[in-house]
Simulated scan of single mutants.
Amino acid sequence: MSSSIAPDILALDFDGVLCDGRAEYLESSRRVYQEIWNDSDLEVEKLASCFYELRSIIETGWEMPLLLRALVLGIADKEILQNWSSLVPNLLEKENLSQQTLMQLLDEKRDRWIQSNVQDWLAHHQFYSGIIPQLQHILASSKPQVYIITTKEGRFTYTLLEQQGVKIPPDQIIGKECQQPKTETLTNLLPTDDTVSLWFVEDRLKTLLSVQKQANLASVKLFLASWGYNTARSRTLAIENQQIHLLSLDQFQQDFFQWESN
């Protein structure tokens, strides 16, 4: 990989960029669902395809059990896709739930799952094709310095990467526990030296647009991972946006100069 074109800092999202964790989220959500709604007969397999397709509308993990509830209640996929931001508070109120309750339950269920059968938990994650060898190659290079910025717990992210033989310092994994928006994380990563380049790969267009709005982050090069949790509409908007590059999985596995080829 050409070092002359490589960024100084490469910030990567995790879920939807490096790892497809939809099967894990579905199973964790099922466990939370059964705890809240006491439905041991829930046939989650019948809802899996819809759940996976709608993953793109989820901003943080605690919303996953609510998505499962919406599907059980028969709310149409189109309604969920178009109006999820308004459906969330309505569902919370209707079901007498809070964000904190769902966050706590989801973490508890996941922790118990990991403690009782970590191999099963790991098996519910699948890294996208070619991601691991490319990530190892980048980490072994003199630059860029790699950071993973994720809404997933940093400890879970570290465990998954470690299981794949990827060695990255824990302090270069910035997870949910930091409790700050990605714009703030990127601001902290970006030195005051104007000659330092930072590239950010994310699968959510909304996140990239929020970065684009920050004047202090104008120098950050933005990439939308086309293989991640996003919609055709999001990918079209990315193509139309002159400051966002639509990145394919094939491009990600090539030299950095190929990342901007479309």
Rank of each mutant, 00 (worst) to 15 (best):
R112A: 09
W113S: 05
I114T: 03
Q115P: 02
Q115T: 07
Q115E: 14
S116K: 11
S116H: 08
N117R: 11
D120P: 00
H124R: 15
Q126W: 01
Y128I: 06
S129R: 13
S129T: 13
G130I: 04
G130R: 12
G130N: 11
I131F: 02
I131L: 05
I131S: 02
Q134S: 11
Q134K: 15
L135Q: 08
Q136T: 08
Q136R: 12
H137T: 09
I138A: 04
L139N: 10
L139I: 11
A140Q: 14
S142Y: 11
S142Q: 15
K143M: 10
P144K: 10
P144Q: 08
Q145E: 15
V146S: 09
I148G: 02
I148Q: 01
T150K: 03
T151W: 01
K152E: 00
K152N: 03
E153S: 14
E153D: 11
G154Y: 03
G154Q: 13
R155C: 01
R155L: 07
F156N: 05
T157I: 03
Y158M: 05
T159H: 12
L161H: 02
E162K: 15
E162M: 12
E162C: 09
E162R: 14
Q163N: 14
Q163W: 02
Q164A: 12
G165T: 03
V166A: 03
K167S: 15
I168P: 04
P169L: 11
P170S: 12
Q172R: 15
I173G: 01
I173Q: 01
I174S: 00
G175P: 08
G175C: 04
K176E: 02
Q180V: 11
K182W: 07
K182N: 04
T183I: 10
L189I: 10
P191G: 09
T192D: 14
T192A: 15
D193R: 13
D194Q: 15
D194L: 13
T195A: 15
T195V: 13
V196A: 10
F200E: 05
V201N: 01
E202Q: 10
R204L: 01
R204Y: 03
L205P: 06
L205Q: 07
